[in-house]
């Protein structure tokens, strides 16, 4: 593949990048490039200008800000998988990162790219949404912040304007007695896209479920909240039966399509199975944390 007639811009700072996006019409932003270059090769996107972010230091690094983690858009999937703060506070995010693609892709693909591409089967959004993560968008004229759930509007569609960049992902540190988990199903062990995925969060208070979030991936145009499933858990004592009931709601809430990786029926079945497994692990993690706290 040759990128003929494409202008490649490599700004050295965020300001310069945002100015470029302001001036260029229909420029494509490139972080790791693992999605973009494939799209270009397959002719899915007409590209005149590529603005590569790889030199922008402001977008790199994971910071522990006391009550939250701030993750720069250029943090690679590999960094997420091996970062100590992530492992300590949001192990489900490390799980998701480790499950993705292959070592080569993980070493170059970024959290910002994974989110901004807004592919329905993306692995990082479900556990991030379960952890109440927000995103910070910035243009040369303004900055705004929103929950990650609101960021997605459709398959490969987001609220991000052509002049904006996703600057960072902010995750509040989970309160005590909280467990977050991520389960996905793939057709083979490695280098495979999720056919269905489920992230769950459980916060316990005096043994009952005080807060619960069930997020479904790859079974709707965007990652979605399984609200009925989440609500069905509240105020209850966690049990396998409770989880099975929640999973049945989640299965109803999933709106998958059939494609070469799986049909509607199989995807719904998977949501049913994965939700139960994810809830069980979230519970285990919530209980584990309680023990540490004592």
């Amino acid at each position: 593949m040759k990128l003929v007639d494409v202008r490649f811009h490599a700004p050295r700072g965020l300001e310069e990048a945002l100015a470029l996006l302001e001036g260029l019409k229909d420029a494509r932003v490139m972080a790791g490039g693992t999605d973009l270059l494939v799209d270009i090769k397959q002719g899915l996107r007409e590209v005149r200008d590529i603005v590569s972010l790889h030199r922008i230091a402001e977008l790199k690094g994971i910071e522990d800000e006391g009550d939250r983690l701030r993750i720069g858009a250029l943090v690679t999937v590999r960094e997420l998988a091996s970062n100590a703060a992530v492992a300590k506070h949001i192990p489900a995010l490390a799980d998701a990162a480790r499950s993705m693609a292959s070592e080569q892709i993980r070493s170059i693909a970024t959290i910002g790219g994974n989110i901004s591409s807004a592919v329905p089967s993306a692995d990082l959004p479900p556990p991030l949404i379960a952890a109440d993560a927000g995103v910070e968008l910035e243009s040369s004229r303004s900055a705004r912040r929103m929950s990650l759930l609101e960021f997605f509007t459709g398959p490969r569609e987001t609220v991000c304007l052509a002049t904006e960049l996703l600057r960072s992902v902010v995750i509040p540190l989970p309160p005590p007695n909280t467990g977050i988990s991520y389960f996905r199903f793939t057709l083979r062990e490695a280098s495979a896209l999720a056919v269905a995925s489920v992230a769950c969060r459980i916060t316990l208070k005096s043994g009952v479920v005080d807060r619960a979030t069930v997020v479904l991936g790859a079974v709707a145009p965007t990652p979605i909240l399984a609200n009925k499933a989440s609500r069905s858990l509240l105020g209850k004592n966690p049990s396998a039966e409770l989880f099975r009931e929640a999973a049945s709601h989640a299965k109803e809430e999933a709106k998958p399509i059939s494609d070469i990786r799986g049909c509607v029926w199989h995807r719904k079945e998977l949501v049913h199975v994965l939700t139960q497994r994810a809830l069980a692990e979230a519970l285990e993690r919530a209980l584990g944390k309680a023990e540490v706290a004592e």
Binding site: I257, S258, C263, V264, W265, H266, K268
Partner: peptide, 13 residues
């Protein structure tokens, strides 16, 4: 296996 018809967007068996 699911039949071809089932694979194309139906709700399954």
């Amino acid at each position: 296996g699911l039949s071809r018809k089932e694979k194309r967007g139906s709700a399954g068996p």
